[in-house]
């Protein structure tokens, strides 16, 4: 079982792998990719639909230095991140207690679980229109969408985290003489923590997608705005810069959270073979 897990995890650590033993192939691959891309554009096969790689890079440097609608690239990025974090914090503040309550109390579960089940098959992005009707196109509606997206995984994971703590571990701690609070401090909390943390990880990555969607629908700043603007003025290079920045942030976010997870749940680490 442990072995299977570590193997299943492998592709997710793939970037390291590449650097370890497939250096050459990767470099070749990237060069071919860029050359092919450049070739297609230069030959005019893609028409005006695609800029050359170097143009993308130039555009990246340009908006890094020169403000676009009042802010440089970093400024827009920070705006988007701020939206995600505000919504995320709200989702954590409300989501964890609700999930925990549902895990502990069967009445709370009976009341709230069907509501969640009802909303689950509805993608959070579908709330955008309603959010705009309710809150206008400003900051509130964006935070609301991101909140909707990140709230559900936090609640579900907190609920499952509490529920799936091995019940015999409670026996184990009781027979060692634990009282009610010690039980929760020593078993409930650490036992459900990995699941709750995983929920927060998922919710951040969903939040990052949601902020993008919300900004695409209507925004005057933020990383999604850079893309929309590129679309409106027909600057494909700017669209691609936006996409690559978004990818880089998503990547860094997941690497950072994996690192954090290993720090805060050291017992989860596998025996490396």
């Amino acid at each position: 079982m442990d072995k299977m897990n570590s193997k299943a995890l492998k592709p997710y650590l793939s970037v390291l792998d590449i650097f370890q033993n497939k250096n050459v192939l990767s470099i070749i691959s990237m060069i071919i990719f860029l050359l092919l891309w450049d070739f297609i554009v230069v030959r005019g096969i893609a028409g005006s639909y695609l800029p050359r790689p170097i143009e993308v890079f130039d555009r990246f440097l340009y908006i890094l230095k020169n403000p676009l609608a009042g802010k440089t690239l970093v400024g827009h990025l920070l705006i988007s991140l701020k939206r995600v974090f505000i919504a995320f914090i709200i989702a954590v503040i409300f989501g964890i207690p609700i999930g925990v309550l549902m895990g502990f109390n069967q009445y709370a579960r009976a009341i709230m679980k069907p509501v969640f089940d009802l909303f689950k098959p509805m993608p959070p992005i579908a709330w955008i229109s309603l959010a705009i009707l309710w809150f206008g196109i400003g900051e509130t509606s964006k935070v609301f969408i991101i909140f909707i997206g990140s709230f559900v995984p936090i609640v579900v994971n907190s609920y499952n985290g509490i529920r799936l703590v091995e019940p015999e571990l409670y026996d184990a701690i009781r027979i060692l003489g634990a009282d009610y609070w010690q039980e929760h401090l020593e078993v409930t909390f650490p036992g459900s923590f990995p699941a709750i943390f995983a929920g927060m990880q998922i919710s951040l990555s969903i939040g990052w997608t949601c902020v993008l969607a919300a900004e695409l629908v209507g925004a005057r700043e933020g990383i999604g705005f850079i893309i929309v603007m590129g679309m409106n003025v027909g600057n494909v290079a700017q669209i691609i810069v936006g996409m690559l920045v978004i990818a880089a942030v998503a990547f860094l976010l997941s690497v950072g959270l994996n690192y954090l997870e290993r720090k805060v749940c050291p017992w989860k680490k596998q025996i490396e073979t």
Binding site: I18, S29, A213, I239, M243, A247, A248
Partner: peptide, 24 residues
Amino acid sequence: GLVRPIFELVRPIPPVAWIPLAIF
């Protein structure tokens, strides 16, 4: 070795981010 680097490059882009390009 050849496909993975490109795949890893594309993977973290949320599908939603492709929409403007797709419209274009």
